[in-house]
Write a protein that binds this DNA or RNA. Structure first.
Length: 659
RNA sequence: GCAUCCGUAGCUCAACUGGAUAGAGCAUCGGUCUUCGGAACCGAGGGUUGGGGGUUCGAAUCCCUCCGGGUGUACCA
């Protein structure tokens, strides 16, 4: 049920005789901000009056006369400068709400489409541990997939795994020099990530060692630049003071950036040189960084030994990430990683060349695009292909295979430029009929407002993050004071299950509750908190509905019959408010699709849970005054439970019958 | 330097794309109730939406300009 669409249709009819831009004006229907203005409002009279050169209130009154809407609304009211306020009739509302009862889809209509929507999300590099940065793509992408699929679209999810890059050169090198076949075979997942960490640390050491002199010089340069800028400021004329000041502060910023870079490099160097084992390793592998690249190149060229190692290691790397996906309850239709496209890359470059889009520049093959300073490089000087090349091959494959209307890339905002270029090339390829969207998202920040890192400066592992959330949830759920009130008592297994649902749900919900494009601060304490805008609040509201239904000993099928017999009646404003909320699920889902913004559904669920709490406070079900009132309330409780459960499910979050 | 995004209550965030008195949650203070489960509900204080100008019936939202931040900027993904 999408009430604004219905209202729009009515307005369009009324507007047709007045203007030829009826669509545009009819679209100006909104829910009201304040209930005293009714349920919905139409704001079209003001701009329309300008077009007609007439008084807006007069225009509004005329529209109301032409409007045929009395089956849905009470007589519309003109207010303020010319707002048209609409209040839904109670009997219309109860009819619609009755229709939701017994409906699997909670009244959300299905929008069948011929074409599919491809969603590319999560896409971690295997062989590296997943970290906090992977949360957003995974959680947002999964929520979008669930919602769009529920809306009736043919959704194809694809996890574009990084399974062909330098990280395999690292593991292969590690295996050859630090590995032990028996140990690796016995415990591959753990052993391989250990090898990765060893080699990676040595590479970081080597890189830091190489760059530290230059970094220190750049600090000195920056410092003298600051001094110069300060001198210039002292001598600057009044009119140029401002720009001189700006120069100083930007020089200072660069300077502190350079100092931070030196410190980071120094840390990595010290970590190795102050440790006997590590410094021995480092001296035994003096050119490890180049050697790793060579191993990677050999793999790409089809070297039998490296290829067979890759084939041996890959399944274990996938096991590692699949464990996380299982825990997050995230699945994919396809997992076509970079390696899948490897053989198609030279063809892509050839095609770009033959169509005159790509050309040689500085020994690399580039696509120059108007509006961009730098070209998109599709093949390096040394002949290797890049991220961009793979993405073009992937795009081509998806078009042939899935015939999509839309392709969504759920990827960090920092890659915006890459996607702008990719889409620009796609345009030149003649792919403008597909809607390509970079569903970008912001960074997860720590408490300090800087990208979230551990104390040692590395990214926080995803699994330990989830463990932390579940552990915290368990403390709350298994609080002995609270557990005493449960009858029957809560067994250990149920406690574990609830902690998992609440803990994982908290992380997902917190992520999805922020607008996807903004950065947010990660605060575990607030996420798992019992009160506030959290998943626990919504999950708890659901549990309350279930308890009431249990006490009433009524299943949904019983309530359907009961309502058919008794009919609806709104005896308290809280009932009507709740019914109105329950009807709006589809609105929030449609809004979510429009902006690819899951926070719209989150907001809706919080608002619904809050509306339910008020209802729960004011409208006793089992002690209802009449059978009719009780039937209405039972129906509302039942529907609320269903809507909350469905809404959370569409976000990838589970519910529990009690908590 | 260029490009791009952002600045909203003490804190963390919204605001249906230009609509009515800018909303939630924390935190603070006060209240309700012998709980269909109190992880509840009600109320109060808290704002010149970074500053200034403009566009119009109407601006957090659009334009200009300052101030302050983030991010990206040819062979990483």
């Amino acid at each position: 049920m999408h009430l604004p669409n219905l209202l729009q249709d009515r307005f369009r009819n009324a507007l047709a005789s007045v203007t030829d831009r009826a669509d545009q004006y009819a679209a100006m229907i909104r829910p009201t901000a304040d209930p005293k203005h009714g349920d919905y409002q139409c704001n079209c009279a003001m701009p329309l009056s300008k077009e007609l050169g007439r008084n807006p209130r007069e225009v509004a009154s005329e529209l109301i006369e032409k409007l045929q809407i009395d089956d849905v609304c009470n007589p519309p009211q003109v207010a303020g400068p010319g707002f048209i306020n609409l209040t839904i009739k109670d009997d219309y509302l109860s009819r619609v709400t009755s229709g939701l009862l017994g409906d699997e889809r909670c009244g959300v209509s299905s929008q069948e489409g011929e074409q599919s929507i491809v969603i590319d999300f999560s896409s971690p590099n295997v062989a590296k541990p997943m970290h906090v940065g992977h949360i957003r793509s995974t959680v947002i992408g999964d929520a979008l997939a669930r919602c769009l699929r529920f809306l009736g679209h043919r959704v194809v999810t694809d996890n574009h795994l990084g399974d062909w890059g330098t990280q395999f050169g690292i593991i292969i090198y590690g295996y050859k020099h630090f590995g032990d076949a028996k140990i690796v075979d016995a415990n591959p997942v753990q052993e391989l990530s250990k090898l990765y960490r060893i080699v990676n640390q040595l590479i970081e050491y080597r890189k830091s060692k190489k760059s530290i002199d230059a970094l220190e010089r750049s600090v000195m340069d920056a410092e003298s630049a600051v001094q110069l800028a300060k001198d210039a400021l002292v001598n600057a004329e009044t009119s140029k003071q401002k720009s001189a000041k700006k120069t100083v502060s930007s020089a200072e910023r660069r300077c502190s950036g350079a100092i931070a870079a030196v410190e980071a490099a120094r840390l990595k160097i010290d970590a190795v040189e102050n440790d006997q084992v590590w410094s021995e390793r480092a001296s035994l592998h003096p050119r490890i960084d180049e050697a790793v690249l060579e191993e990677t190149a050999k793999l790409h060229q089809g070297d039998p030994e490296n290829l067979s190692l890759w084939e041996r290691f890959l399944p274990h790397c996938k096991d590692e990430i699949n464990r996380v996906y299982e825990r997050l309850d995230v699945t994919f239709d396809h997992t076509l990683g970079e390696s899948f496209y490897h053989s198609q890359l030279s063809g892509v470059v050839q095609k770009l060349r033959s169509e005159g889009l790509a050309q040689d520049s500085d020994g690399a093959v580039c696509v120059f695009l108007s509006g961009f300073d730098a070209p998109m490089i599709v093949q390096k000087q040394d002949g290797a292909f890049l991220y961009a090349t793979t993405d073009l091959a992937t795009l081509q494959y998806r078009l042939e295979q899935f015939d999509p209307a839309e392709i969504l890339y759920v990827v960090d905002t920092r890659q915006s430029e890459h996607f702008e270029k990719l889409f620009a090339v796609a345009d030149q390829f003649g792919l403008e009929h597909v809607k390509l969207v970079h569903v970008n998202f912001g960074t997860v920040l720590g408490e300090d407002g800087k990208p979230m890192k551990t104390r040692s400066g590395s990214l926080i592992g995803l699994e330990s993050l989830l463990d932390g959330a579940v552990e915290r949830a368990k403390k709350v759920v298994c609080d002995p004071e609270r557990l005493r009130t449960f009858d029957p008592p809560m067994e250990h297994a149920e406690q574990e299950m609830i902690a998992e649902a609440v803990g994982i749900g908290a992380i997902k919900f917190a992520d999805l509750s922020h607008h996807r494009t903004s950065d947010y601060r990660f605060n575990l304490e607030k996420m798992v908190a019992l009160d506030g805008n959290t998943s626990a609040y919504v999950q708890y509201s659901y549990a309350r509905t279930q308890k009431i239904l249990e006490n009433a000993k009524k299943a949904e099928s019983d309530i359907v019959k009961l309502i058919a017999k008794e009919g609806w009646v709104f005896s308290h404003p809280a009932e009507r408010n709740l019914a109105l909320m329950l009807m709006k699920l589809e609105e929030s889902l449609v809004g979510l699709h429009k902006d690819y913004a899951p926070n719209q559904l989150v907001d809706y669920l919080l608002e619904t849970a809050k509306t339910y709490s008020k209802f729960n406070e004011n409208c006793h079900v089992l002690r209802a005054e009449t059978p009719q009132i009780q039937a209405t309330r039972l129906a509302l409780v039942c529907l609320t439970g269903r809507v909350l459960q469905l809404g959370l499910h569409l976000l990838g979050i589970g519910v529990v019958p009690r908590m």
